[in-house]
């Protein structure tokens, strides 16, 4: 099957906004007082993101991440971190794939979808881990 998408250029992915978030990722770095910390990998390429959350009364008070990833995964994580800071866990859990694509606002090819969505998967799993831990404690 030959895919006829010659007009889709990778160049179009690397908009100024994306490159800005890649070079100056927001909320990047360590957090010593995190309530929960979790790391996810993209098994396909070895990309790795570590997410740390500070949670008070169901609200994401602070968020930090470190990563070894491409421009798409890093900018996606950076934008997502801005989006959820100050939100409740419930609000964060409601974010879906389409929201991430809208946020990035670039054409994402099929092979790069995993890069774009790794941060969202990571966020969901981190919250899950936090909630499981709290449940056990109670």
């Amino acid at each position: 099957m030959i895919i006829d998408d010659d007009l889709n250029k990778a160049e179009d992915m690397y908009k100024e906004n994306i490159l800005d978030h890649y070079k100056n990722p927001r909320n990047y770095g360590d957090m010593k007082t995190a309530d929960v910390e979790h790391t996810e990998f993209n098994a396909l390429c070895g990309d790795k993101i570590r997410l740390m959350l500070k949670i008070e009364k169901e609200v994401i008070k602070d968020i930090k991440f470190t990563s070894q990833g491409c421009a798409i995964s890093k900018s996606s994580m950076s934008m997502l971190s801005e989006e959820i800071k100050g939100k409740t866990l419930l609000q964060a859990k409601k974010i879906v794939k389409q929201d991430v694509f809208k946020m990035l606002n670039i054409p994402i090819s099929a092979v790069r979808t995993k890069c774009a969505l790794l941060p969202l998967d990571l966020l969901k799993n981190t919250i899950k881990i936090y909630e499981n831990y709290k449940e056990k404690k109670q």
């Binding site: 798409i72 790069r112 890069c115």
Partner: peptide
């Protein structure tokens, strides 16, 4: 520049390369 980004851009110019860990983590 991450290897994935390079490989994606090279594809724009018709150049097929591999990026990633090459099954040798």
């Amino acid at each position: 520049i991450h290897s994935h980004d390079l490989a994606s851009l090279l594809d724009d110019y018709g150049i097929a390369v591999r990026a990633g860990h090459h099954c040798a983590m």
